[in-house]
Simulated scan of single mutants.
Amino acid sequence: MGDPNVEKGNTTMRKIALFAAAAGAALSLAACSESTQDAAGDTVDSAAADTEANMDAMGQAVEESANDVEVAADNAAAEADQEAAEVEADVQDESVTEAQAD
Rank of each mutant, 00 (worst) to 15 (best):
S95K: 01
V87E: 05
M55N: 13
D102I: 13
E88S: 15
S28E: 11
G59R: 07
M13Q: 10
A84G: 03
G41V: 01
M58C: 06
G24L: 11
D56S: 08
A47V: 14
A22P: 00
A20P: 04
D93Y: 12
S33M: 01
Q37D: 13
Q100T: 05
T43A: 12
Q37T: 11
A84V: 08
A17L: 12
K15N: 14
A80R: 00
A57H: 01
G2P: 12
L27H: 09
V87C: 06
S46F: 05
E86W: 09
L27G: 02
M13F: 09
G24E: 08
E88Y: 14
D81A: 07
G2E: 05
A40R: 10
S33N: 06
M58T: 01
L27D: 02
C32E: 12
M58Y: 12
A26T: 07
L18C: 02
Q60R: 04
A48F: 13
K8G: 14
T51W: 02
A73N: 04
S33C: 08
N54L: 14
A48Y: 12
D68L: 13
K15A: 13
E94K: 07
V44W: 07
A61V: 07
A31N: 02
A89P: 04
S35Q: 05
S33R: 07
A39G: 11
E7H: 04
